[in-house]
Design a protein around this nucleic acid. Structure first.
Lengths: 174, 174
DNA sequence: TATTTATAATTAACATGTGAACTATTTTTT
DNA sequence: AAAAAATAGTTCACATGTTAATTATAAATA
């Protein structure tokens, strides 16, 4: 007898629910919750992997985005655009990364409204050290799919995205 | 010329990144972020649909879980189990739902440590009114997939869940 | 050129979630 | 029965995110 999935409690409820509501879109309701459920677990997993380094999935992603920019330097506005996160949150994240000594704030030469966020040496070293570990975790997670399934999953996610995608707005494109 | 996807900024970055890191698991990295990205949009969408009723996706889900329980009544502990959410958060959510007049707190007859959360008449009416609208939104969202794709997507999500699922722990099973 | 408008970053207030510590009970063990 | 352990709910402190308002600067326009 195999142990119950963490999704089981919800499945019992929806089963009961569907019995009383025969016209409910049961499959769609399950898909919605299943998507959320998997997201939550994946997210917890990554945070757990990153916490020994004083990172979480947000701060890690911010470092990677800075690292992926020429000169390892970016404006908060561009970072907000790349992370699809509010400017306010970028300010807070920057505070945190500066506090930890991984990022520096400098005034921009061209535009006195702008700030430049750049990786410190410690920041670069951290990224280089953690990258291979993260790659390994990604490979482990997605190795549950074979080549065809990977292809299918990406295709389906992009199709789903197409249904709900929003116009870009904003003016901070690079 | 079609407008850019909101996922485009990330795709540019990862492209640049992969050029400098040929051994990076590019596809896995994209899948990870794409999953997050779609989650965020789906979530925003649902919150937007629910906000006219003074609901968000959490409070709505809590109401549905109570509604799906015999007698429309549940202990915070069971609700926490069904929602896969901390007890602390259930306390806060309950405060909110009670405040809005949709839920009542009563002492349990059997066990003096326990509380019973039950729907008020207003709560039941709200659920019955919002349910068909939510069903419609679910149908709209997932109608982007045909029958085979729905089947595939659910299969793949469950497979992914299998890779990261956690033992249930806890003692609040029904 | 002077005025208006837009942009960049921040602050303040608040929304939503978590874990640790606490209180009150119930259950288990000795 | 008394002591110990487990369970239910709450409060507190804090993590992580958002929107609205504010300040400074740059760009557009009249």
């Amino acid at each position: 007898m195999n142990p119950l999935s963490s999704f089981q409690p919800f499945e019992s409820k929806i089963e009961e629910f569907a019995n009383h509501h025969p016209d409910a879109p049961k499959r769609e309701i399950i898909l919605n919750r299943l998507y959320y459920h998997v997201f939550k677990l994946v997210s917890e997993r990554q945070n757990h992997q990153l916490s020994p380094f004083g990172l979480n999935s947000s701060s890690w992603f911010a470092l990677i985005m800075i690292h992926s920019t020429p000169d390892n330097a970016i404006n908060p506005c561009n970072l907000s655009y790349a992370m699809v996160s509010s400017r306010t949150n970028i300010t807070r994240l920057s505070d945190e990364l500066v506090e930890k000594g991984w990022v520096e704030r400098h005034a921009s030469g061209e535009d006195r409204r702008k700030i430049v966020l750049s990786l410190t040496q410690a920041g670069r070293q951290l990224v280089e050290a953690v990258l291979p570990l993260q790659w390994q975790h990604y490979r482990e997670l997605w190795s549950v799919f074979n080549a065809v399934e990977l292809e299918q999953f990406e295709f389906l996610l992009r199709k789903l995205l197409g249904r709900i995608d929003l116009p870009m707005g904003g003016s901070c494109e690079e």
